[in-house]
Design a protein around this nucleic acid. Structure first.
Lengths: 253, 253
DNA sequence: CTTGTCAAAATGTCTGACATTTAATAGGCT
DNA sequence: AGCCTATTAAATGTCAGACATTTTGACAAG
């Protein structure tokens, strides 16, 4: 793969890193491929070798690249990517068209993890946590008819508040995964023939049940409610095949 | 805090980063404190400014430090650490005396997460996964009477195999947390008056039940068994207060 | 066919100078 | 006194060039 397709560039090393990272995440190179040499990048983007080295250092620290003296720079496999690195989340979130496979993996993770996190949140939440949840929920309700991007930010804030409320250092770090996955979902929902909006009001109601359960410090209810929030998405993506597994206390037609 | 207490140093920038990281993780500096300047580090350790900058770049990318031009380098709060960064795990694993608070957080995470991961593993495991689990388990059994360090490696391998078997990109990354937490546990168990060895044979039997459940593709059993593996530790650390919550395979009223 | 040596190419490192940002400080004005 | 401004100092950030090191492949000798 050459550099010809990449957009031009002006700015610091961070921006360059972001640019290259998104090209990698978009699959412009295959795992094992050789990555352009420092000097080529330097001349192509018109920046100093220093900036290139700094950018490549970022990509290396997130597991996207592997560099060895004499050998050159190689592209690493998706299995080696540090998906939980905040830098990676940032790059992923702004990606126009993330690999569907990757989005599916992240959402499968969330579908299995968030019920547990919600349970912990219901056990550990303090007043400030509930307030944050409440504020995010109000924002979601208020922007139900607004632009999807705006609604998505409150959606991210809501789920992040759940992770925060778990009061666990490790779980809290994983809130970074929310933005990329939620943004990817709304992008997909804007494709034609997709009826995710149809369930928007329903989605809001499910979020309300999570909020309510955490406020009532009801772990079991919180766990169930969190699963229900993600269930529709999980079914859509084939993460879970049978909707009857979690039979909603009411009914799922 | 000065540099006087730190051991000498010879080697590359990675080693220097590790040295400084462990000093930070050990709490030699408080959050918000100023970190020594590049030139001071350079002269103190007898390395070039370049090496120092590379080392500090690592510490910055893991959220341990925060650097701004003109202001200097500051130590960040534990809330900002990237605990899921593989580099961080490596530094943590070799730490002589990790902060008890941190170990507790990681184990609380594992106690809540591993049952879910084991469930996924039971649903998704393939032959190779079961083989890896089996091999690690045999290693654990074989080294039951050997040095703790050796046994711990198989213990890490066993739990990592569970994460791997989940076949989820995100969960698999979290296997990195295993080594530091397990090493911290065996260190603590070697303290006098600690009777963790007493339960070693029992621990082996619990691991066997996890292996068995995953081999049988029994998600419910795997989830319960994984919880039981960590339960004793969780009770010891006060993560869960009541041992009756999960009353062993017997019955759940 | 194997082995050793050499050359080319890539990343890694060093050094010194300079740029930029930030914070403190001194000075002058009202 | 109090406030605003210009200057200075101190730290990190950047650059350019030379050099070091590592890896790989080619080539020739045994």
């Amino acid at each position: 793969m050459t550099l010809d397709g990449l957009p031009p560039h002006q700015g610091g090393a961070e921006e360059l890193a972001c640019l290259l990272a998104r090209a990698l995440l978009a699959g412009h190179w295959q795992p094992g491929d050789a990555f352009p040499r420092e000097l080529d990048l330097s001349t192509h983007f018109g920046v100093s070798r220093n900036q290139v080295r700094n950018a490549l250092a970022s990509l290396t620290s997130t597991g996207l690249l592997e560099r060895t003296a004499g050998r050159g720079t190689r592209v690493r496999s998706i299995d080696d990517w540090h998906l939980l690195d905040p830098l990676m989340s940032e790059w992923l979130a702004g990606l126009a068209d993330p690999a569907p496979h990757l989005v599916r993996e992240i959402l499968a993770f969330r579908y299995s993890a968030e019920p547990v996190v919600a349970r912990l949140a219901a056990e550990a939440a303090e007043a400030a946590d509930v307030e944050r949840l409440e504020a995010a929920y109000q924002g979601m309700a208020r922007t139900a008819d607004a632009a999807h991007e705006q609604h998505a930010e409150y959606d991210v804030a809501f789920h992040d508040a759940i992770y925060q409320a778990s009061h666990n250092l490790v779980w809290r770090q994983m809130g970074h995964l929310l933005r990329p996955s939620i943004i990817a979902l709304i992008q997909r929902s804007q494709e034609p023939l997709h009826r995710l909006d149809a369930g928007l009001h329903d989605s809001l109601a499910r979020h309300a049940r999570v909020l309510d359960a955490i406020r009532r410090r009801a772990p079991d209810a919180a766990e169930r409610a969190a699963r229900d929030v993600l269930q529709r998405t999980a079914v859509d993506l084939g993460i879970v095949t049978d909707t009857a597994i979690t039979p909603q206390h009411a009914v799922n037609p």
